[in-house]
Design a binder for these strands. Structure first.
Lengths: 121, 121
DNA sequence: ATTAAATATGAATACTTGTTCATATAATAT
DNA sequence: ATATTATATGAACAAGTATTCATATTTAAT
């Protein structure tokens, strides 16, 4: 991308109390922004949110998740793959059935914190 | 939606250690799932993530945000409207310029917590 | 070997979304 | 009044996404 605002703006804009070169700390690293967004995007769908919520405290097999969400096995399986790709969820196989659980406690903390915030909305 | 798994499955599936009617607490309220997802979706885009990060500690006018993100005023303005619609961000107008800031501290906590988690990846 | 059960996956489709372009609004200055 | 600055917005388009459908894979049972 290139400069998008007119040059003159930089001289006339009195909007910020900061000097133009004193924006360190306000600019996030590009890759960090992408990584953060990727994680949040994974949480940003009702179906995946329900899956994650169901897995907050226990592992569950695909079938049980289908019943809980009342959705087709295919749709659930596709979303589980999505969540697995971004390391939110992990698999454990026993015979024919595959158990899913949260990959670590990070996401649980984030979700619980956010639920609190919604409650005090 | 309707039942999606075969009935027989409920009898034969030995996946869960829970009885079929003991899933209270694993099923999240539909509206809560939607609300959570809506919030996370708003955080789930690199551009919006950069905007929010820039606003973590200070309010900034639209022009400054354009410079910081190096994006067109239109694109920034559209995303700011998005963030305002979901109450993540609020406006303050002074003359011609409009200052944006986080609507409350909730989102800041969530973002900082998530940044920590990414760091301890 | 067949059959059935549990899960995975590729293709297709309908829907959503982020940016651009052009233009509109609002405030200030001359 | 006119021009300029700062921001907002509608339409359009490209790119992305969630679900469905059909089918594949894996494991166990008979």
């Amino acid at each position: 991308m290139e400069r998008t605002m007119e040059e003159v703006c930089e001289d006339t804009c009195t909007g910020s109390e900061l000097a133009a070169d004193d924006w360190n700390g306000t600019r996030i690293d590009e890759q960090t922004a992408i990584d953060l967004a990727e994680l949040f995007k994974a949480l940003g769908d009702p179906t995946r949110m329900k899956l994650i919520y169901a897995l907050l405290d226990r592992e569950l097999c695909v079938h049980d998740l289908c019943v809980i969400l009342n959705m087709t096995q295919s749709a659930v399986s596709h979303q589980l793959r999505y969540l697995r790709n971004v390391r939110i969820v992990k698999r454990r196989k026993t015979g024919k059935t595959v158990y899913y659980s949260l990959d670590d406690t990070h996401v649980k903390e984030i979700v619980l914190l956010t639920i609190q915030h919604l409650a005090h909305g």
